[in-house]
Design a protein around this nucleic acid. Structure first.
Lengths: 215, 215, 215, 215
DNA sequence: TATGAATGAGGGTTCATTCAT
DNA sequence: CATGAATGAACCCTCATTCAT
């Protein structure tokens, strides 16, 4: 057993910098993570078997366990590093001052670059969100999503107060509508507290008129 | 084998009216479909076992096979009736004349009601799209998606030509951006042919200014 | 899945009467438990594979899971019913009044009969005690052992106070020395050529009077 | 392969003096045996993985194979040296003349000291006796046990003939009842709060005189 | 219609061991 | 002497499905 394994239990690796310090991690291992990520993205995390990953690497399935504690560990490694970068994007945008419109623009621009670098993670979350969200080990994912929502809502609110955005904007709903476009589309059904008509009207309003205030 | 089973092979049941002739189908069977749908929506289609469905119905898993050929049949029944209604919504909106803006508005309004009646199907598609999309039996799903895209794009194009929508709108991209909000979020990566910057710019433009032409 | 499975989680089945009410349990299942018990006794619990159990039953290993949640469940069923009977023996002996010598004699006689009926459980505990003792699911085993120790020690103490037993006896230490003879040690069944009663009598004789000839 | 490996095949090392010629054996190797023994004692031989041993030594599991042929070799080394000392104790006691009572007393006293020096071996035999007993490589263990039984039985018989022990004693049965107390049973070390001498004295007292008060 | 028992393929994982470097 | 990577067999378990009763 190599000493580079991710921890099997304990606080999710998302709390630390999962790969930032990973300079020493073997290239073999890194290669395996990339391979696995590609398969996860193509077929989904659950639908991908460790045997398929091993096959892609040209080894036997058991040999994967020389590098990783479990299939979950591989997923965790991919997801945690992704979510940490995204969170950094958001925090960076907020910290860099600027008015809400500038902050939102920076968020969108920086995360879009991060997303491009983490295609596998994004695909995994889209395909198997409900699975990850339910698992204790991946509790940091819903947690991160909540922080992201907080940031969006506070920026939208600030924009409304400063007159940059339309005063009739429903910040929370607007975020919900937008998130999925950028992101992991949580179910409509979870958009509790809004009637269907409300959702539709808000969508059409944004779709046709946008959120910017018309001077 | 009972005579009410769905066909296991052959053209997907989506091509006919899945439930239109279902007057003879036992209520028991219909109840089982609803039960299964709820579980599929909660846990995802693949993650739900036939045992869980049987448990929820208070019978043994083997007994389900008196009503259905397979787990796939149940999924098919749920998905096909949903997609057929949605397709009907789209076709109806197009047929009802009106300008592109009116058509789009009607599409959004009518499908939103259909979606509300088919929560389970929607959740299934969100969670397990990649699975269904890859299976021959569910080939009608990507097919339906393609028709829906054609309708959106043609309406957006018509709107541009008539001056209702902004002339600089990228119809295909606009559809892709919108679809996920309404719908099944296909992966960004599949939006090939667009550079990241293009996507981001388009998103921001729509987000801030909307798609409506400023008079 | 049949509804007779033992619970996978929760308080150990030892707390209830594991088999006392088991009149409804299928004979097939009961037969499988016996088969498994024999293998566990011969080779040890850990050393016995579910495949071996299934082979012995003439079915495939997966089929065992129609009857049991897990290998642990089978072990639990065997062990819990055993330990409950032993505990009942001890409590019965204590409740039946009598002086400490009579109580100890009754304990030895009644448990020796119980042990004879639960050869498999005894062998399992002998071979894999350290394993069971460490597992949460089998926490009731150390718990039972502690109760048994309390009973022995209190009877030995009472015997000393009443002058029945030697005043210089260290009760706790004496129990420790005896326990293994009655109990965790090698199988009685291997002491071929002796009837149970003979063994019990010999044991009681040595316990009370020692091996030295009284001059 | 280093030249210090134990032989993998052939007559068990128990037949020779396992460590008598070990002067040249590296201290590293000896240290590894001790480490392994501790783990074997704690978790059982089978339950301990070579990885755990290597981890405890601060090396990788593969590196262990520079010192030992196999996991079995380590076990053999520990067990053989133990059993040889015990056998020496028994033979010494018999050779030192004395009446049967003296011989038995000496056996108990000397083996109890040997046992104290070989905690790991004792624990291993307790936990995994059935495993070792079944393996050809460890055939010397049952063989040793048979010699030990012969000695006990002959001493008990001699004691009966000479009038030292009760004439109604069943020697073979008595040995079986006693063996586990001295031997395969739970660890003496768990009998905390008692010194070895105390335990030995108590045992001899009960063995010879029983627990009943002599009126 | 339902039960109860079984199938069979495949799932993730473990572990003693090997070997080139 | 040690590493790091891999083997290969076995392990416990899951699950859609079948079928005699």
């Amino acid at each position: 057993m190599t000493h580079v394994k991710t921890t099997r239990e304990g606080q999710a690796s998302a709390d630390g910098s999962a790969t930032a310090d990973g300079s020493m991690r073997s290239e073999r291992r890194a290669h395996l993570v990339v391979l696995a990520g590609e398969l996860f993205a193509q077929r989904g995390y659950r639908a991908t078997t460790v045997r398929e990953i091993a096959d892609a690497a040209g080894i036997l399935s058991g040999s994967l366990y020389h590098h990783f504690d479990s299939k979950e560990s591989i997923g965790d490694e991919i997801l945690a590093s992704f979510i940490n970068e995204v969170l950094a994007d958001y925090r960076g945008a907020v910290a860099s001052a600027g008015n809400p419109r500038a902050v939102i623009e920076q968020i969108v621009r920086s995360t879009s670059r991060t997303l491009a670098r983490h295609r596998a993670a994004l695909a995994m979350l889209q395909n198997d969100w409900s699975y990850f969200a339910a698992q204790p080990r991946f509790a940091y994912l819903p947690r991160a999503l909540r922080e992201i929502e907080r940031i969006w809502v506070s920026q939208l609110e600030a924009g409304k107060e400063s007159g940059l955005f339309r005063a009739d904007l429903d910040s929370k709903l607007t975020y919900r509508l937008l998130r999925d476009v950028l992101w992991i589309p949580e179910q409509w059904r979870r958009t509790r507290g809004y009637g269907t008509d409300q959702v539709v009207d808000a969508f059409l309003r944004i779709l046709f008129d946008g959120i910017a205030n018309r001077a």
